[in-house]
Write a protein that binds this DNA or RNA. Structure first.
Lengths: 189, 189
DNA sequence: GTAATTTCTTGATTTATGTCAAGAGCTTTT
DNA sequence: AAAAGCTCTTGACATAAATCAAGAAATTAC
């Protein structure tokens, strides 16, 4: 079983055969550090699984660049709204490191449901789980200070802190790099 | 066509017959101002459509009460994670006004998929749309000041401002009632 | 291995937002 | 209609976080 299949298995819980069928629709692909997976304004016509490497999802606003998420091994990456509704992508997605990904194009993606009858239901559950993760993330912004968000995130994502420029984590947590740096200093000493 | 059916129609786009079938699973119910629709820690075994009235979704934390959302006419209300995964509810949901709602219990909810084959797919799309709304909301916290969030929300939800205690809107936007009040004053004059 | 670039830290300062406390203005209750 | 509760506002002040600027540290390019 490939790693992709293992992850799909764990997220969706489908049979060996179904797994092989879905897995086969994903094509292995490498993407170099700095390359763009997606740019704001284009329609996102693919969904990828990250086998290795790191991708950053962000938006360029008039004032500043805002990092929405850093996606790592084992996660799927796409602009969901754009993929599903064919709207222009809100996010730009760029590789922070060389990355190995498995990609399915939107055509094949839309075909999964016909191959595997239960797929829509399982995917519904998967997206619902993603939904609740975002609910919780909003809650952190309503209830926590920058410092609390830092610790909360750090406890759950220690590895990330020595893999990516910290300014991106700062942005993702809704604070400036300077504030991030000061909290970090306090926390280390 | 009932209002419930009209909304389901607009969200899910299903046929007249299917609509009648789903619609029939919802039972009309009234709920008095102050009544609890759901309490944190219980398992949420229902999903409701709001026909009229306002419900507030919030959490009591050790320090303060945090309002996650105020739900209005035309919206569905539930603790999605709890409904789907049978986990203890994170949110408490309380009526801010007398409300008229249409409720489906989790048993019937889980049966829709067997009645209407396309349901899971349509619901997937519906939840995906909710997902992207939350993505956008997170973005407001990463990119905007309290004042900007105020205006952004105000432009889109003017009516709400003379229907509910403003402190709840303040909380929902991630600021104190005092800050909210000051921004409001500036904005009026 | 040195230069060039990018990233991170630090200090000084400003600005935004939170806290506390009091009172005014509404609603609801009696 | 007075009393009791809420809710909102306001001022004074405290604190958190942003901004600006400079330099140190790390990384990447040559």
């Amino acid at each position: 079983m490939t790693e992709l299949e293992k992850y799909i298995q764990s997220y969706f819980g489908i049979s060996q055969e179904d797994l092989a069928q879905v897995g086969a629709l994903f094509k292995r692909q490498t993407i170099k550090k700095g390359d763009y997976f997606l740019k704001t304004g284009r329609v996102c016509d693919k969904l990828s699984f990250i086998q290795s490497g790191l991708l950053r999802i962000y938006v360029q606003t008039p004032n500043k660049e805002v990092t929405q998420l850093i996606s790592t091994k084992g996660y799927f990456v796409t602009d969901l709204a754009s993929l599903i509704f064919n709207t222009p992508a809100r996010w730009t997605i760029q590789a922070l490191t060389d990355a190995e990904i498995y990609t399915i194009d939107s055509q094949d993606y839309n075909r999964i449901g016909t191959l595997i009858p239960k797929w829509h239901e399982l995917e519904k559950l998967f997206i619902a789980r993603c939904f609740t993760i975002l609910e919780d993330r909003i809650f952190t912004h309503l209830s926590m200070t920058a410092e609390e968000r830092y610790h909360f995130f750090f406890e759950r994502n220690k590895e990330l802190f020595n893999q990516v420029p910290l300014q991106y984590i700062a942005s993702m947590l809704g604070m400036t790099p300077e504030t991030f740096s000061r909290i970090r200093k306090k926390s280390i000493s």
